Amino acid sequence: MSFSQSGQSTNLISTLIAEPVSPSVVEPVEEAVTTEAERISDAKRLENAMKSIQELQNLASEYGIADIFQDNGGKTLQLLILLGLRISPGREGNDAIDAEGKEYELKTINIALNRSGGVTSHHHLNEIILEKYRRVEAWYIGLYEGITLKEIYKLTPEMLEPKLKEWEEKVKLKNDPLNNPKIPLKLVKKGQLVYSYSKYSNPK
């Protein structure tokens, strides 16, 4: 897959979409952190930013994303646009479809938070979900540093089959679904690199 100027059209998305902050790393606020004048100024800045966010939401709605603030909505939108996909109707199965109706799994990971971690799969992974994973055309996995998309890798179900088989055996052994088993980043990077921030942000 090739991209023309796609890498140059993501500034609005990468500027607006931020990772949620875990409550465990936030200290309770015991007193106001801004003056009244500062809060008024910030409220005006927020109002202006929300106008741009509404434009982003309007775009996201065209791709089947109802709320860019939920479930990595903004990052998913970025992948959909770059890859020429749309959200699958209902999103009960696989994440996205192309113009021919082929299905794809979309995943994102913020490697700035955990460079040795892995890509989450499904919070209730069972044999039915595993079979859906095997039937997709491909998996696209976006690697982010904070809010900046760095790379997108394409992996076929055949490449993931050893991991899928491992999960399947665990499900059968436990007779219970697995909770978000991870795809190692080392495996992800064996896939086809279809987007690189360095390439598209610094065209020759």
Rank of each mutant, 00 (worst) to 15 (best):
K163W: 05
Y140L: 05
Y200G: 00
R134W: 07
E30N: 07
L178C: 04
K172A: 14
K154P: 00
L83S: 04
E103N: 03
K44L: 14
S121V: 15
A37M: 09
L155V: 05
P157R: 10
L106K: 01
S22A: 08
G117E: 01
F69W: 14
E100F: 12
E55I: 09
G74Y: 11
E166R: 09
S24D: 13
K75N: 08
G74F: 12
I87N: 12
Q57C: 07
E151Q: 13
E166F: 12
R45L: 15
S9G: 08
Q54S: 07
E36Q: 08
G7N: 09
V119S: 04
I141G: 06
V26Q: 06
Q78I: 01
L173S: 14
G191Y: 08
Q192F: 00
P177F: 04
G73P: 13
E161V: 02
S14T: 05
E47W: 11
I109D: 03
T108S: 13
W167Q: 00
S121M: 15
K154L: 03
S24R: 07
L143E: 04
Q70G: 00
I97E: 11
L193H: 01
I13G: 07
D42V: 01
S2K: 13
E168A: 15
E161D: 15
I87Q: 14
P157V: 09
K186Y: 01
S24H: 12
L85P: 03
V29G: 01
E92N: 11
V33W: 04
T10C: 10
Q54F: 08
V25L: 11
G7Y: 06
K174E: 12
A99P: 00
K163L: 15
S52C: 12
I109S: 07
G117R: 04
P157W: 09
G101V: 05
K199E: 14
R91C: 08
I97M: 13
E92V: 07
E151V: 02
I129P: 00
N72C: 02
S41F: 12
R115W: 09
L155M: 12
